[in-house]
Design a protein around this nucleic acid. Structure first.
Lengths: 193, 193, 193, 193
DNA sequence: CATGAATGAGGGTTCATTCAT
DNA sequence: CATGAATGAACCCTCATTCAT
């Protein structure tokens, strides 16, 4: 009837932000190693944090996945802000992140209607829109390409990479990039003469 | 005083093949409705069959998923054998099947190294190779296209369709088809003049 | 990810009815000893039955409490059917059952709006109605008494007995009986001359 | 770089009594709204007070319940001291308090052997004894009535009211009052002529 | 003296798998 | 060969209690 609490160590509230970071890092590892069905509690264990703290910081799986993905996205936004990002840069980032976040991506996929996830999608779309406008103006991408072409393609590519064996990822990534480059190249949208 | 426990209906060995079919049909419904994490036992219930029979026919989840997918593939092979299958036909099939087998696809994804799954992949590759050779010969697909481009693209497309909301599937399917057509068109692989 | 089942013994389906009885008996003991907040799983343990079997037989706490209480009620109905039950007989039964079912009563209380519980209440009301009509006709209970007076009083008494220390139960029971007898006696409802 | 964790508001020792009052008020609300199984911590949250302060003021659930109930009792004592309290007045108070303190009553019930709870019972008995003596002297209650008849009846009534649906409380209260009035009326204890 | 994050054991429930009938 | 109840480990989540700040 009574729950006996026997905390081994209590580092106090100061541990809060540190724990949050540890949980996000642990989530990356756990979901990368064990796929999206890994027990939620495994994240807490890996982070060296109590179950309760995990739930305090992230009330549900989605909250955690969003936090992880948000870090990825923030890095991308930062990169986009700091210079002239190209489609290849975007693909590079997507491939890199897909390789290390496979479980998280799958997790997010399951919740695509969650408002928190939709918000991330909107932020990603913005990055893409700016990129596309610039590249089209420079004549490096065809005018037939729409932002959704890029977002969907990037998502497909990331998923495919994520589920590919590590030792074949480079080859598959190269193949998909080539396909997409051909599809998005200037002139690709019009019938050949 | 105890009423002897007795199987309600035991139709004997004759029921074997019938049960197998019922289980496969039930699996389609269950995984379509509930996603890949649906309880295995739900399939037996939906099929109107005991747990034991489910395990007899399909010792594990993968065995069942393979059986379902094999039906899809057999249909495609049959279709390919019976006439001049085009890339568009292939895409049509993939889209149709993705829409109705989303859970199964996800299930198979998790087991891509299972030999039973690999065997299906090999059969699919064969279909694609024949198709590609014919279409390239007819000048309807570029010579830069390789069979793996098709298999990977089809897989990506199917996954993407499967995870898209039903009411947006047509639009997304159209978009992806356009991208891939542009990518695979004759001339798309060479630099523009 | 996989749940490993390691059943020590599996006595087969024949154990079903036996398990059900064992669970009901265990529930009586557990809730009598530990009150209504006893862990549900303790019932399974006491019955020597797996958790799953407990849930199969009784999908929730209320189902179990209803089953227990239904046994009590069936005994009362049987008794009422077999002869001329008096108010004192009813009180006797209520007191006896309250003493041994305290936790169950509390449990049922929490679910009084559950249809299963309401059905039991209706059955109890029927017994009371017949009893009251007969006793009033015989002049042993006042005409001012209504069935609900009896049902509420019995409920109050049972609850009070259930929460009284065993060694004071007789005294308290006697006291409450006297109060209610005085209240329900012929003439008690009318002003004294 | 780390921002030092700092208590938002710490009003110092002066806040002590104020917090205590806030906790008691919060307990009333929480247990009225959520029943006796409401999380202890919810009280602190509702009171706008830290967990630690809750534990400082009330080391356990019972301490808090006793404090709440003590307020009710003090009000009753004050009322009794200030005039000629009748049985009906007592019932009125009991009904009113039962309606608003249902969770607390249930909580106290579980701890009736706690000395703190027993002390409250003794104080209540004193009020009843004085009331009974006065009413019997005035001929408004039968000589057969003993203090324990009143205390038990009041307790039963309160419990019954507390667990009755709000919209039926008036009817049930009226019914129980009538029963008890009939039982305690002068002459009710003697056999009819 | 107050705050509120951290802890982790415990209870609820599900479901993969076995096996008596 | 089919049935479906039985089993219990695993996962999810809550919450009583402590304690650094």
């Amino acid at each position: 009837m009574q729950q006996t609490a026997s905390p081994r160590t209590n580092r106090g509230p100061a541990a809060g932000p540190e724990n949050r970071r540890a949980l996000i890092a642990a989530a990356r590892e756990i979901y990368a190693d064990n796929g999206p069905n890994a027990p939620f509690s495994a994240v807490a264990k890996r982070a060296g944090v109590g179950q309760g703290s995990l739930y305090r910081h992230f009330p549900d799986r989605t909250a955690l996945a969003v936090a992880v993905y948000e870090e990825n996205l923030a890095e991308l936004e930062e990169y986009a802000r700091s210079g002239q990002i190209t489609l290849d840069d975007l693909f590079d980032k997507a491939i890199t992140q897909a390789s290390s976040s496979m479980g998280i991506i799958a997790l997010i996929d399951g919740d695509r209607h969650d408002p928190r996830v939709e918000a991330l999608g909107a932020r990603f779309l913005e990055v893409v829109e700016r990129l596309l406008a610039r590249e089209q103006a420079a004549g490096r991408l065809g005018d037939h390409v729409e932002p959704e072409d890029i977002t969907i393609s990037t998502g497909m590519m990331a998923t495919e990479i994520a589920r590919t064996d590590p030792d074949q990822r480079d080859a598959v990534a190269h193949r998909i990039r080539t396909i997409l480059h051909n599809a998005f190249a200037p002139g690709a949208g019009r019938p050949r003469p």
